[in-house]
């Protein structure tokens, strides 16, 4: 079974560098100078961080016009498009990393999107809100209400999230799809790594968000933890 990586990533607990700390975790997984496609790049904060701090050759895909405009204003290369329909246009292995941050749960076909990510990139980095987080479980179990948390802030009728999953669900899906989970992290509500995440069951309970480094085959370097 998967062991969630206990390695401490040198990330701060504050929002310095103008970027959310969960995004800094993602950034820490990316080699400098790499070719990166950020799917669902929003206003481009991660992409800009990667371009400026890591000198990556970065591209974005974003569905909203306002997001695309915000990116273009910063001089980033971003295509207005839809992860559900447009990923098929990219050639296999075109990027070193394909990032899908907090977007998988909004797609119509998460499985197809997931397959496309690992096809297009040597690595894929996926993060999503964990529906198995104890606060979610608590709200559903005790209050009988759809969870509203810091990583799931909107009520049921307004949320763009249509495919919820837990960290455990996601890991099972990766195993079924033959996707290698090279690294996995569970982060707390603030987006910081928790020191207590030693086992999958705890990660699934105490992690507000899961962050995963995926590949189609075992990477030669690194990969301390793999899907069982």
């Amino acid at each position: 079974m998967t062991n969630l990586d206990k390695r401490q990533i040198p990330i701060g607990s504050t929002y310095n560098d103008g970027i959310r700390i969960d995004l800094r975790l993602i950034a820490s997984l990316i080699e400098p100078g790499a070719r990166v496609l950020d799917v669902g790049c929003g206003d481009g904060s991660l992409l800009r961080y990667l371009v400026e701090k890591k000198d990556v050759d970065g591209r974005g895909l974003e569905i909203s016009q306002s997001g695309v405009r915000a990116c273009l204003r910063q001089g980033l290369s971003v295509v207005q498009g839809d992860a559900d329909t447009d990923l098929k246009n990219y050639p296999s292995g075109a990027f070193d990393y394909v990032v899908l941050s907090e977007t998988l749960q909004t797609t119509h076909n998460p499985l197809i999107v997931l397959r496309e990510l690992v096809r297009i990139g040597r690595f894929a980095i996926v993060s999503f809100p964990n529906f198995g987080y104890w606060r979610c479980r608590w709200q559903l179990l005790v209050r009988g209400r759809m969870p509203v948390t810091k990583s799931l802030p909107l009520p049921w009728h307004a949320t763009p999230n249509i495919h919820f999953s837990t960290i455990a669900d996601f890991l099972t899906t990766c195993r079924q799809e033959g996707i290698v989970v090279a690294r996995s992290y569970a982060v707390d509500q603030r987006g910081a790594l928790g020191a207590f995440f030693g086992a999958r069951v705890f990660a699934n309970l105490f992690g507000a968000q899961g962050v995963f480094l995926l590949a189609t085959e075992l990477p030669i370097h690194g990969g301390e933890s793999v899907a069982g």
Binding site: R35, R59, Q65, V68, L72, L76, V79, G81, D86
Partner: peptide, 13 residues
């Protein structure tokens, strides 16, 4: 995109 070209695209509303 099929060439992984450096492309930006925006639909102006």
């Amino acid at each position: 995109n099929a060439n992984a070209a450096n492309v930006s695209f925006c639909e102006i509303e």
